[in-house]
Simulated assay, not measured.
Amino acid sequence: MPVGEQPAYLRVAEDLRRQIREGALPPHTRLPSQADIRAAYGVSDTVALEARRVLMAEGLVEGRSGSGTYVRERPEPRRVHRSAHRPAGECSPFRQEQADERVRGVWEARSERGTAGPTVARRLAVEAGDAVMCTRYVYRVADGPMMLSTSWEPLRLTGRTPVVLPEEGPLAGRGVVERMAGIDLVVDNVEEEVGARPGQVDEVEALGGRPGRLMIVISRTFRAGSLPVETADLVVPADRYRIAYHLPVR
């Protein structure tokens, strides 16, 4: 193969991808079989198979047991809004983290005491094995679950206080900033890191889709000055959502 030339399976995948995007292969249409691809493009079975695998990895097609491979329906991605501004009187953290400003979402939460693993310990500036409160959320909108979140708070800060449980007590559901203010910690900055990876088994089970579904992961840490008070991982399906930031300019 000449230097700089695409491998044959990528050229085949690119042409099939073009047909999908232009509508020549609309949603729910059966993808040409491996034999059809081999004949149409003059390639080997191995090349045809690899081209199909590329499209499947990109989420453009899906296999149906005993039936074949079909073009997936691709709804217009919705937004998960991230903003430094929260409307006055708006207490729900979900309003900042939902998919559509016009939609009111709900969430389920479960908190339990645990210990910080190495990654969480680094993000919270504590020692591995230190006590934390871990809270797992499932966020839902009208058409089902749209986001998972797992948060960790160091119990050396919140233990034996009224805000030890994020969703219980006098400031239940009020969000990290307001809850921490209740114990005289002024949260004045937040750091977010956005990445992507294949969904873990429990994430795919909760959010739907097939194993390997690509997820966007937002790793967030709230701080009072330089002191981390909470860190969390937010997980949303990459094929259904986009992360939209609205930030002030000073």
Score class of each variant (00 low, 15 high):
Val3Met: 13
Arg11Glu: 01
Arg11Ala: 00
Val12Phe: 02
Ala13Trp: 09
Glu14Gln: 11
Leu16Ser: 03
Pro27Leu: 01
Pro27Val: 02
His28Cys: 03
Thr29Phe: 15
Arg38Thr: 08
Ala40Thr: 02
Glu50Tyr: 10
Ala51Cys: 10
Arg52Met: 08
Ser67Tyr: 14
Ser67Val: 14
Val71Asn: 10
Pro75Lys: 00
Arg78Cys: 01
Val80Gln: 01
Arg82Cys: 14
Arg82Ser: 12
Ala84Ser: 09
Glu90Met: 11
Glu90Ser: 06
Phe94Gln: 10
Glu97Asn: 12
Asp100Thr: 01
Glu101His: 09
Ser111Ile: 08
Thr115Ile: 12
Val120Trp: 01
Arg123Ser: 02
Arg123Gln: 06
Arg123Asn: 13
Leu124Tyr: 00
Asp130Asn: 02
Met146Tyr: 15
Met146Lys: 15
Met146Gln: 15
Ser149Val: 03
Thr150Ile: 08
Leu155Val: 04
Val164Phe: 15
Glu167Phe: 03
Glu168Lys: 11
Pro170Phe: 10
Ala172Trp: 13
Glu178Tyr: 11
Ala181Ile: 13
Ala181Thr: 09
Ala181Lys: 09
Gly182Gln: 08
Ile183Pro: 04
Leu185Thr: 08
Leu185Cys: 07
Val186Ser: 02
Asp188Asn: 11
Asn189Phe: 07
Glu193Trp: 15
Gly195Asn: 11
Pro198Thr: 14
Pro198Tyr: 15
Gly199Asn: 02
Glu205Pro: 09
Leu207Cys: 02
Gly208Val: 03
Arg210Val: 14
Leu214Met: 06
Ser219Leu: 03
Phe222Lys: 05
Asp233Gly: 08
Pro237His: 13
Pro237Asp: 04
Ala238Ser: 11
Asp239Glu: 01
Ile243Trp: 01
Tyr245Asp: 02
His246Glu: 13
Leu247Asp: 13
